[in-house]
Design a protein around this nucleic acid. Structure first.
Lengths: 187, 187
DNA sequence: TAGATCATGTAATTTGTTACATGATTCG
DNA sequence: CGAATCATGTAACAAATTACATGATCTA
């Protein structure tokens, strides 16, 4: 009831509604047809989540009057919702978050545009990269243990994890470059 | 109640108990100190999950008699549990599974050792790679859309996803090579 | 002897999943 | 005119998180 932070799904919804008001059905289609597809597009997840956001005052409902017979209930971001997004955008990546839900750091990056200065965004990405590299060290320490334990598959699986996080670390470096280039392009 | 398939956590538990019987506390420490760390090590998740597995007959409880005053309830894999693992090991990766929980395909690979022939394991990895590459195509198709929509962050986030899945696809190829080398080494 | 760690678990709450229910509208 | 899609939701259930509760044993 007094839960301070929101679920990933709720943040994703706020991020979408920041662009344009949407109906629950709109959201379903977006989740079913874009890279946000790892969110469930089932109405049983979306409608209750929108209702929760409305109850908290982060979102406002309006009925689309243009179609009287088949009303669409549009959800629009309210100012407190903007504030919640802004606050979330300022949270750094932690090891815990990386392990608990690895998709949160990128989702936050995706939605933070406009809330942070370029240098703060770069700071966020640096922190993200640092957390990933620290966890990579942990995983690499596991290599001798996994070799000793016998069994080829656990060893290969460990390499799967290492390669995945290496790709994430490399992406943070690349993204920082992209942001700096974009910055330099504007005198 | 009649849920046919198990949760990821339950499969992970079966996989651990296949090696050696463990107490709930043992499991907590393993989750807290190995690459399985993305599973919650909270007792509120582990003890109920073990109880569910026992109720289904997949796991058997035994009390460690060596420490009477502080009894440890060990869980051991029962034959139906072995059967459940075996059945799971034979399931191919689907797009849906990849999006719903990206960690399932590797967990299954990690636990399938011994249940499948080398050629079937290679078949599994090929299928996994195919699903990843198919989803990569979907993501790459999103690039023009994301460019047109304005906003740098969503575009960079899309690349994050692409790089992550590229790493997974490359890993499946590499793992297949590893398995073939291992196979050729034994005449 | 006080605090950390071992070791077990439960209770309340929240969230998500699956399945169902309803009805309008559009398209072939 | 029938099927697909638009559009909204609810109800039952399963699962996880957080917090709490309890007590033994080891260690500084």
């Amino acid at each position: 009831m007094d839960r301070e932070s929101l679920t990933l799904l709720e943040y994703a919804l706020l991020g979408l509604l920041r662009i344009v008001p949407l109906s629950g059905y709109d959201v379903q289609r977006i989740f079913a047809s874009t890279p946000l597809g790892h969110f469930s597009s089932s109405p049983g997840a979306i409608y209750p989540a929108l209702k929760r956001l409305e109850k908290r005052g982060l979102v406002r409902f309006t009925v689309d009057a243009s179609t009287e017979l088949r009303p669409r209930r549009l959800s629009a971001l309210a100012e407190p919702g903007m504030g919640a997004l802004d606050a979330w955008a300022h949270e750094p990546v932690t090891r815990d978050e990386l392990l608990r839900d690895g998709r949160a750091p990128v989702l936050r990056f995706s939605l933070m545009e406009g809330f942070l200065s370029t240098s703060d965004v770069i700071g966020y990405l640096r922190g993200y990269g640092d957390v990933v590299r620290a966890y990579l060290d942990e995983l690499r320490e596991q290599r001798p243990l996994a070799e000793g334990a016998g069994g080829l598959h656990p060893l290969l699986s460990l390499e799967h994890g290492i390669r995945g996080y290496e790709a994430q670390a490399a992406w943070t470096d690349w993204a920082i470059e992209q942001l700096q280039e974009r910055e330099d392009g504007l005198p």
